[in-house]
Computed example of a mutant assay.
Amino acid sequence: MRAAVVTTPGATPVCTDFPDPEPGQDRPPLRLVGAGLHHIVRGLASGRHYGSEQAYPLVPGVDAVARTGDGRLVYTGFARSPWGTMAELLVTPFEVELPAGADPLAVAAGMNPAMSGWMALAARRKETGGIGTTLVLGATGMSGGLAVRAAMALGAERVVAAGRDPGALESLRGLGVDTVELVATAPDTWAAALGAAVAEARPTLVLDFVWGPVAEAAFAALGTTGTDDGGAPVDYVQIGSLAGTEAALPAALLRSRRVRISGSGAGSVSKAQMIAELPEIIARFGDGTFEAPYTAYPLSRVGEAWAHEGRGRAVIVPD
């Protein structure tokens, strides 16, 4: 079969022949419709992501929309290494049928980023019965923007979206959320800006897609002087690290506030938990709650897709 293939760590994939995937028990191969080029896909292929097996050659891709032998469109993923989803044929352990009206390439582009925030929100809802006030750090990226929409759809009392893209923040304000612009040239002002936003209603849930200095500013905003005996507990969930892989955590914050810091991602969330949430997430693409802009690239142009930048996501499609 034809597939995108990475031969060494850090190499750009090329379209070439690759062995067909080994058949699964009672699971005939699916045919690719579209596979999203997500941040995790690049990280795994390069060997930089903690989940990388660093075994080459490999076919990149963690999820896809595919067509079954009887013509149904399904969302799928978790192909067994070295096979990923950027290939003509896929053998995967699960399938979730797309709802009527859902754009299959938007689903391919958006399901992985949507899942990243949704899983933390769903866990909060299951544990406490509600979402409360939610602060989203990195809300102007695709994952963060979808998390804002997910929080609203799941009944958050208030949503504060923080990010650096003024245009994207303006769009989010149109949805009825509060926004905080983290001016790129003035990181020393971030803590004050976040502090002013959370002073009105301290968040009970923080979804952090960026970490690094943004997380440090958020810690400063949450850790005002004095103790907070009557304050509601805060769940701080680390999801992405686009702004940096390290952040200094003040000891005083942990002692003076009821703060629980955890992570959400592959490994801390099981595959079974992810699959259980997929139908509800996919339904949001069908009813228009979620949108994911994309640019489609045929397999033969996977190298161009690898260099794709911008708000939209690259999606690999068959030639």
Rank of each mutant, 00 (worst) to 15 (best):
V315E: 00
W306H: 02
V160D: 06
P23Q: 09
R260Y: 12
S116T: 13
G51R: 14
H38C: 06
T295D: 06
P60T: 03
V302I: 08
P23R: 06
I261Q: 11
D63N: 09
A168P: 07
A156I: 14
H49A: 12
K126Q: 14
H49R: 07
P293W: 02
E157W: 06
G47R: 08
T68N: 07
P233W: 02
V214S: 02
G230E: 10
P60M: 01
A66W: 04
G176W: 02
M115V: 10
N112R: 06
L182F: 06
L98R: 08
T134W: 05
G84Y: 01
R258D: 15
T204C: 12
S300E: 14
A3Q: 06
A153M: 13
M1G: 12
L37T: 01
I131L: 15
A272G: 04
E277D: 14
S270F: 02
L37S: 01
M1S: 15
Y50H: 15
S52A: 15
A120F: 08
I281D: 05
L249H: 07
L154I: 11
W211K: 01
Y294Q: 00
P279F: 04
V302Y: 03
S116C: 10
A221W: 01
E157I: 03
E95N: 07
S52K: 12
E22C: 14
V41W: 00
P82K: 02
A292C: 04
T128R: 13
M1Q: 14
T179G: 04
F209S: 01
P57I: 01
R202A: 14
L254C: 11
H39P: 11
V33Y: 07
